[in-house]
């Protein structure tokens, strides 16, 4: 099973990286850009047969290690 995990900064947490990318995009002429938030993307290959099992494990991994709930939100997608 392939699990794709997306970790993003919570709303309200300052994202200086996003700000720097936004400024760069503006200077390249992409004036329509209003806000940029930079996050993390992880791919996990799990040796399990059931999607439900993969979901449960991914949930626990996010809570324990992959995201810091003080500053980050996460979501994930499971595919076969």
């Amino acid at each position: 099973m392939l699990v794709k995990v997306f970790v993003t900064l919570k709303e309200g947490v300052l994202d200086p990286q996003g700000k720097a990318v936004e400024n760069s995009l503006h200077s390249l002429g992409f004036g329509a850009v209003r806000e940029v938030r930079v996050g993390k993307y992880l791919e996990l290959n799990l040796d399990v047969a059931e999607a439900g099992d993969a979901e449960q494990q991914a949930q626990r991994m996010c809570e324990k290690l992959l995201a810091n709930p003080v500053i980050e939100d996460y979501r994930f997608e499971v595919s076969g």
């Binding site: 947490v13 300052l14 200086p16 990286q17 720097a20 810091n68 003080v70 500053i71």
Partner: peptide, 17 residues
């Protein structure tokens, strides 16, 4: 200590980068 939950809050990237 923050990651371990022994202290509140978190340390993030410097504002200046």
């Amino acid at each position: 200590l923050c990651e371990a939950g022994l202290l509140p809050g978190a340390l993030t990237r410097n504002e200046s980068l």
